[in-house]
């Protein structure tokens, strides 16, 4: 099939695909955490219950953790795909 990227380029395209997905997952989760914390702090200050830096710090740490979790899941997915690939290579389907 045309979407079987592996056969044509020896896996280079698929690695490119994986490499471009991992980096942004780490970064965006961090920024989402930071944004949630920042605006939560702002809002809490407005309603008169100021916790100025703490919410930001807490949610930023959570965001970083979420980023690492994303990367971990992504790596697990790649590993699974590779194992499946190795199995297919070791036991080629009989015609």
């Amino acid at each position: 099939m045309i979407f079987n990227l592996k056969n044509k380029s020896g896996g280079a395209l698929e690695m490119l695909l994986n490499a471009t997905t991992i980096g942004l997952h780490l970064v965006t989760a961090t920024f989402v955490g930071l944004a949630i914390g920042y605006f939560l702090d702002k809002w809490l200050c407005d309603i008169g219950w100021c916790t100025k830096p703490w919410m930001t710090i807490l949610w930023l740490v959570c965001g970083i953790a979420a980023g690492f979790k994303n990367v971990y899941l992504e790596v697990k997915r790649i590993q699974k795909a590779q194992e499946k690939d190795d199995d297919a290579r070791r036991n080629p389907p009989k015609d």
Partner: peptide, 17 residues
Amino acid sequence: VIEVISHISRPLSLTLR
């Protein structure tokens, strides 16, 4: 908390990429 952040980060990373 972590899962909610990582779910919200998904559309953001799709968009930015």
